[in-house]
Amino acid sequence: MATAVVTGAARGIGHAIAGRLAADGFSVVAADIDGGLVEAAAAGWRAAGLSVEGVGLDVRDRAAVSALFERLGRVDVVVNNAGIAAALVGLAELTQEALRRVFAVNLQGTFIVAQEAVRRMGQGGRVINIASRGYLGGAGAAHYVASKAAVVGLTRAMAVELRWQGITVNAVAPGMVATRMLDDFTPAMRGALEAREPSGAAADPAAIAASVSFLASAGAGFVNGQVLLTDGGKCVGMPPL
């Protein structure tokens, strides 16, 4: 049974991805900074007959990530989903603390997990990084945008190098998804944002999990270095980065 590691799997998009990959037949290691919550979720999946192990993990902690992959050995798929949103703030008011915090999780955490996984992959494997439609640019969110643009840049650079090892590296860029990240918005603002979505509403996390499922599937091995924008088409018309 092929193994897939999913970070940030206790809630939201990561939860949907872990459940989807388990249903696809992977033995899933669901990691999250909230160990108790992800272990409870894993117990639920196991009760449904799926193979899921829940583990507490802070992706910023190099030693902890290294220890996890040392224990797991070779994994087939790693999904870098753990990420944080950032409150909307103009660049003039942006603090270095907020800037560094969003990079520590979204980029540096992704880098650490991807590197520890790839070091043990040998030939073949899939790395799937969850970016955001926002990587294309957004006013008032420069720090979040830059961190997600960096995830896409890392994805492309990894793909350039790792293709010789048969490892594909792709990104999925969701648009607005119904997760806790939307709690940062007031109900009025959230309603206004949802009205601008092609579907008129924030997407179900399952829609993002479907894109990840495709990139992890046997037939997608020739797709490499790509950003699979999964946003209902809202970003069509924007120039690519």
Partner: peptide, 24 residues
């Protein structure tokens, strides 16, 4: 480097971050 290149994935990620920052 934002387009992806060989020779230091950290540099390409930093380059891409800067382009994202610029667009924002």
């Amino acid at each position: 480097g934002h387009l992806g290149a060989w020779g230091g994935a950290h540099l390409m990620a930093g380059n891409a971050a800067l382009i994202g920052l610029m667009r924002s």
